[in-house]
Amino acid sequence: MNFNLTFIGQSIAFFVFWWFCQAYVWPLFANILEERKKKIADGLEAGARGQKDLELAQAKATKQLKEVKVQAATIIDQANKRAAQIVDEAKDHAKEEGQRIIVGAKAEIDQEINRAKEALRAQVSSIAIAGAEKILGSSIDQAANEEMLSQLAAEL
């Protein structure tokens, strides 16, 4: 068992390797692990944030859906009202139109009646004269009885 210079050589190697390790090897892995730790932490945080965002978005979507339903209901309501209104208007319009047609028809009928009356009136005198002539057996001077005849026609 020789105790010799070898142990000094080993001591020198020991310190050189230690220096090399702390200068070049250790920092590499320390940095990598540190970075990965950070990455994982960031990833987890992002995941949590995503989850939260999703929840918020869902809540928002639900809320919007509700609003939209309310709006849709309002619109349908309005549409129904409007439809009823249009029907009512149409009804009124139709009534008016019918009234107008009736009024027009009445007026036409009155006119027809008047016209017929006029025609009758025109013919009454001659019928009266013809009747009187038949009764009297002679002709009546129309001009002489003009006043009486027109009075008669007016009474009709």
Binding site: N4, F7, Q10, S11, F14
Partner: peptide
């Protein structure tokens, strides 16, 4: 190397 007392004592003395 570790069966050489010089090596192990070299390290322990360091």
């Amino acid at each position: 190397p570790t069966t050489d007392v010089n090596i192990t004592v070299g390290m322990s003395l360091s």
